[in-house]
């Protein structure tokens, strides 16, 4: 088995990071045939190669162990020779009896040198997505769901025309990590509606966890269809929160009474699949909050 030519460019760390923003496959493969495809229904093109997978750094879990399998790689630019071994960064393309991927980049770097960095970078990217949600959140609380029930106050909430039914969850709040806790410990969550609503966090009695809560805008001020996008101007700062009715540790530290009539109730909801986390993630969320407040 020959090695890639010495002149093969070694990507810089920045290149690897850029590749990883797209790559769902990172694997070491030995080129079997150039201008070939082992995919049903796909005619071979000159830039396609079949590759025997030697080692896997990253791949979708659902696909099982890819080692020993032959994949078809649609390369960026061709230029490969049989028996060369590369570490491929690739994104998803074709599934069937066999798998095809689209190359983003490749490196001759030793896989063991890459493995830890790839995993760390992928986890950093995932943390960055959560951090983005933390930054946009109006309130972050941990606690337990005491009860759920259909919301009485649905006036102006988005999605109703598409069949969304809004529910309330009443929380016992264990800690307030950011902003003011929801009024009376009550948050909103959608049931039903189009698929984009379905993937949002739901609440169940006795459920415990960490909620990254966002103010639900009126239907009249958000995109007509679909989940409110948190784009555009930053929301107004949250008003001081009134003392919730149900005492909890966090509430004992809350501000003095505030006249609710002067502050329209904030309707807080988890508006992204990343807006709910298990209790065990609280320390991590706290760390990410800490980093966002000090950036």
């Amino acid at each position: 088995m020959s090695q890639p030519p010495d002149a093969a460019p070694r990507p810089l760390d920045d290149s690897l990071r850029a590749w990883l923003t797209e790559a769902s496959f990172v694997f070491v493969g030995c080129v079997r045939e150039v201008g070939a495809s082992n995919l049903g229904g796909v005619e071979a093109e000159p830039r396609m190669v079949t590759v025997d997978v030697v080692e896997v750094v990253l791949a979708p879990n659902q696909l099982g162990d890819l080692r020993g399998q032959t994949l078809t790689v649609a390369t960026q630019d061709g230029g490969l020779e049989p028996d060369q071994e590369w570490t491929f960064f690739a994104k998803s393309w074709h599934y069937g009896e066999t798998i095809g991927v689209v190359e983003i980049g490749r490196t001759s770097a030793v896989v063991e040198d890459l493995r830890a960095g790839v995993i760390a970078e992928r986890l950093r990217q995932l943390d960055a997505e959560i951090t983005s949600r933390i930054q946009s959140a109006d309130a972050i609380v941990s606690g337990r769901v005491l009860a759920t029930y259909p919301a009485e106050d649905t006036n102006g909430l988005p999605g109703v025309i598409d069949g969304v039914e809004w529910w309330n969850a009443e929380l016992w709040i264990a800690s307030v990590e950011k902003g003011a806790p929801p009024d009376e410990g009550r948050i909103w969550f959608p049931e039903g509606g189009d698929p984009e609503w379905s993937v949002l966090p739901k609440a169940y009695p006795n459920q415990t966890g960490v909620w990254l809560l966002h103010v639900l805008p009126d239907a009249s001020s958000v995109p007509i269809r679909g989940v409110p996008a948190l784009e555009g101007p930053a929301p107004e700062p949250a008003p001081p929160h009134p003392l919730p009715h149900r005492p909890s540790p966090a509430q004992e530290q809350s501000d003095d009474d505030v006249d609710p009539s002067t502050h329209p109730p904030r309707r807080l909801a988890a508006l992204d699949p990343l807006d709910f986390h298990a209790d065990a993630d609280l320390a991590r969320i706290r760390t990410l909050i800490w980093t966002t407040t000090r950036e």
Partner: peptide, 25 residues
């Protein structure tokens, strides 16, 4: 798509009248 991260969605296709199927993302 089963992959992460992903920026595309798949469709299923057949080239043999529906006997065998593949997914193209």
């Amino acid at each position: 798509d089963t992959a992460t991260p992903v920026t595309t969605g798949p469709y299923f296709y057949s080239t043999d009248g529906g006997a065998t199927w593949f997914q193209n993302s």
